[in-house]
């Protein structure tokens, strides 16, 4: 199973083994990672599962679709070039070793 590391706002790190086909948002909320809120369950209407993808992995992520692109503009922290909504990051084998920083605040 691909390993993904989440960096919390307090710099602590959590490493999860996430099955291929599961989104980072679902894996994080299922494991009680509080920094990922995911209020709308992946519907691209809340922008509360915002993460920043660390160096070297951005091009391994699925392309940003229109609804995600729109919502990224309304994250509480504000958008940066490596911003993604983690509900759209569905894990593939390619993502093994991925590190994402949890945006703060989400709400």
């Amino acid at each position: 199973m691909p390993k993904v590391t989440f960096i919390n706002p307090d710099e602590s790190r959590i490493e999860l083994d996430i099955p291929v086909g599961t989104s980072l948002m679902r894996a994080a909320t299922a494991h009680g990672i509080d920094g990922i809120v995911g209020d709308c369950g992946g519907g691209l209407t809340c922008a509360t599962c915002h993460v920043l993808v660390e160096d070297g992995y951005l091009d391994k992520m699925p392309a940003v679709q229109a609804n995600e692109d729109q919502m990224l503009d309304f994250t509480a922290m504000g958008r940066s070039p490596c911003s993604r909504l983690s509900c759209q990051l569905v894990v593939t084998e390619d993502m093994d070793g991925l590190t994402v920083r949890i945006a703060d605040p989400q709400l």
Partner: peptide, 18 residues
């Protein structure tokens, strides 16, 4: 949440769900 289809899914997913 996000699994049932009561708010739809895809491009037209309910914009007012929040």
């Amino acid at each position: 949440t996000g699994i049932h289809l009561g708010f739809g899914t895809g491009a037209h997913i309910c914009i007012g769900q929040m």
